[in-house]
């Protein structure tokens, strides 16, 4: 239904305070949601990184910031190694990567640190999002 709660909880999850109000109103630099509502009524869905097994962003990354986590297979972005060249954005076929213009780096879904269900899934009021793993990841 495109309520946008996934964005709210994602942003809060990736804030320093983890408090909805503070995260939205006070924190600087502004925390960003890594999930994005895509709406064209009647269609609406939440778009976040698909964590591709053969991820174009990882192969294209100029710095090595974008990498595949060896244990989990998740596509993880290291903000300290990102120089904001936007090459990953050029090659992501779903458009799921976000520009953090304040810090001039990319911001993406990290599956909430893989500590159980991601915030967008856990807080979807409609059960529209589910978290499912593909066949076991082999490095």
């Amino acid at each position: 239904m495109g309520c946008g709660l996934c964005e709210v909880y994602c942003l809060t999850q990736h804030s320093r305070s983890r408090d909805i109000l503070k995260a939205y109103k006070r924190e600087r630099p502004k925390p960003l949601s890594r999930v994005r509502r895509e709406v064209a009524h009647p269609l609406s869905f939440a778009l976040q990184c698909r964590h591709c097994a053969e991820a174009p962003c990882v192969d294209a990354c100029l710095t090595g910031a974008m990498h595949i986590d060896e244990k989990t297979g998740a596509v993880i972005h290291d903000p300290d190694r990102c120089m904001g060249c936007w090459t990953c954005i050029m090659v992501c076929p779903t458009g799921a990567l976000n520009m953090d213009l304040e810090n001039r780096i990319v911001a993406k879904c990290d599956l909430c640190g893989l500590s159980g269900e991601p915030a967008c899934v856990a807080n979807c009021p409609n059960g529209a999002l589910e978290y499912r793993e593909d066949p076991p990841w082999k490095p």
């Binding site: 050029m90 992501c92 458009g95």
Partner: peptide, 10 residues
């Protein structure tokens, strides 16, 4: 505005 570059590239 470059956010959709990857979709177009695809």
């Amino acid at each position: 505005e470059i956010g959709d570059a990857g979709v177009i590239y695809h």
